[in-house]
């Protein structure tokens, strides 16, 4: 059994069937640009605010792009019975789910490009530590993809997946320190913030773009990896329980 052939085919098939479709491609550009435009133009502080807003806008673009695609594609395949075909193949479940998430991770990282380019055109890229930004982007996309996987496993309909995704995503906009520091949140909400992977992703972006991180970068990366691993393990456990009853 050549596992590489099987996993490569799943990735290529998903890319062709979902991610490279014109509506998704244009959505991957328009949606992050809309986020960026909304925050940059309406912030009221002129170009000075762009650098301050950029980490939040990037994180939101990656989060929404990744979770939307994965939750919908997996729920759609589950509903049509096509996912059963994958479960019947002699591929370990963990590898199968990793193959299903690879494209979502890449799509999420690509979603970060429009706001970065827009910000670069407006204010330039001085002071940005790219060697930190890029791994941070990947880790945010990974953690968001596994959040999407967690949602997809829980939902049985596409609309349920969309609704359930928002249940996670919108609170994250306020809880994860994207646009204002966590310290401004009520004290009783802060523990919840520290349980969310995006908190560490946003902090790492603030550190690498504006040198204004609240936690050590190693802690941000460590927590992103740990929470991603937990989300993945929990999702795979749920798949075994719910999809292979």
């Amino acid at each position: 059994m050549n596992l590489r052939v099987a996993l490569g085919s799943i990735i290529a098939k998903d890319l062709r069937a979902y991610y490279l479709k014109p509506p998704h491609l244009s959505w991957g550009v328009i949606f992050p640009l809309a986020w960026a435009g909304m925050f940059f133009i309406r912030s009221g502080s002129g170009l000075d605010s762009v650098a301050a807003l950029l980490p939040g806008v990037i994180a939101v673009s990656v989060l929404f792009g990744t979770t939307s695609m994965l939750a919908v594609t997996i729920t759609f395949e589950r509903k049509s019975g096509a996912l059963d075909r994958l479960l019947l193949a002699p591929i370990p479940l963990e590898w199968l789910m990793l193959a299903k998430t690879v494209n979502a991770i890449a799509f999420g990282v690509a979603n970060a490009v429009p706001p970065i380019l827009l910000a670069g055109c407006l204010t330039g890229f001085s002071g940005v530590a790219w060697e930190e930004v890029i791994p941070t982007l990947v880790l945010i996309a990974v953690s968001s993809a596994f959040t999407g996987l967690f949602v997809a496993v829980t939902a049985s309909e596409v609309f349920e997946a969309q609704m359930f995704s928002n249940f996670f995503r919108f609170p994250m906009l306020f809880l994860c320190g994207l646009f204002f520091p966590i310290q401004q949140l009520p004290a009783w909400l802060r523990p919840l913030s520290y349980c969310l992977p995006l908190t560490y992703g946003a902090d790492a972006l603030h550190a690498s773009i504006r040198q204004s991180g609240q936690m050590p970068l190693s802690l941000d990366f460590g927590m992103l990896i740990l929470l991603s691993a937990l989300l993945f393990a929990f999702s795979v456990r749920n798949i075994r329980r719910r999809w292979i009853p």
């Binding site: 059994m1 050549n2 596992l3 052939v5 099987a6 490569g8 085919s9 799943i10 098939k13 062709r16 069937a17 049509s80 019975g81 096509a82 059963d84 075909r85 994958l86 193949a89 002699p90 591929i91």
Partner: peptide, 20 residues
């Protein structure tokens, strides 16, 4: 339960790839 957006040939090739 094959993939509606893939051709007949692509569907079969994909299923073969799943078995390596």
């Amino acid at each position: 339960n094959l993939y509606p957006e893939l051709t007949g040939f692509s569907n079969l090739c994909f299923c073969g790839a799943l078995y390596g």
